[in-house]
């Protein structure tokens, strides 16, 4: 769950004295939107995004590519003129949860990853996080999702896990979510099997309420409406 295992280590970078056309070409070629800007010894000095470039390009360039004056002016612009200096970066030892919360809070699409000397080690983007969480959810593997409503008290999850384990069923993942009733939780075990009817019956016989996932969805929905 560390950034180091989910980040992209082979980073496409650029230097501060490069032109913005060069940056544009690099982004297009690699279908990326963030370029860490580094100096000669691989120290992070900035970040440039496709949005920075778009804001720097005058509108006339899109409309009239023959406008020499405008083009020259843009060609003279260097990455260091338009980049974000000393951008926020994270450490390879941070967790992907850290990265997720930070990306959400700062509203950015990617963070450079640097060591304690701000040497660039990688980049972690929303795309990398999605891949990591798809893996955490276990949804790449065939399985069935159960939805169980439990009263919040110690030991509930153990009983559920024990019951499922007794049936010799492996877990892809298990999620616990809030429910609209304060003292209840919805538990979502993702089971790597097609054979769920017996375990469902067993859980019901133990007194658990198996939710129709749509009921859960409908109950939640109005609460979140503005």
């Amino acid at each position: 769950m560390f950034v180091s295992s989910s980040m992209t280590s082979e980073v496409i970078t650029i230097t501060g004295d490069a032109s913005i056309f060069e940056a544009q070409e690099k982004m297009a070629k690699h279908t990326i939107r963030h370029l860490p800007v580094i100096d000669a010894d691989n120290t992070l000095v900035g970040v440039v995004t496709d949005r920075d470039i778009r804001s720097a390009l005058p509108y006339s360039l899109f409309n009239d590519s023959d406008s020499d004056a405008g083009r020259e002016k843009v060609a003279a612009l260097k990455i260091q003129d338009i980049m974000t200096r000393d951008p926020m970066a994270i450490s390879p030892a941070d967790t992907i949860q850290d990265a997720l919360l930070l990306i959400q809070e700062k509203r950015v699409g990617a963070f450079p990853v640097v060591d304690e000397n701000r040497r660039l080690k990688g980049i972690i983007s929303v795309r990398d996080l999605l891949r990591a969480f798809t893996n955490v959810l276990g949804i790449g593997e065939p399985g069935t999702l159960l939805c169980i409503l439990v009263t919040e008290e110690v030991g509930q999850l153990k009983k559920i896990v024990d019951t499922i384990t007794e049936e010799n069923i492996s877990f892809g993942s298990i999620l616990v979510a809030r429910y609209w009733q304060e003292d209840k939780r919805a538990v979502f075990p993702y089971l790597l099997t097609l054979n769920v009817s017996r375990v469902k019956k067993k859980l019901k016989d133990m007194g658990y309420h198996l939710l129709d996932p749509m009921d859960w969805y409908m109950d939640q929905l109005p609460k979140h409406q503005p």
Partner: peptide, 8 residues
């Protein structure tokens, strides 16, 4: 597939 086997 988010609720049922095989997830595809």
């Amino acid at each position: 597939p988010s609720f049922a086997y095989p997830g595809t």
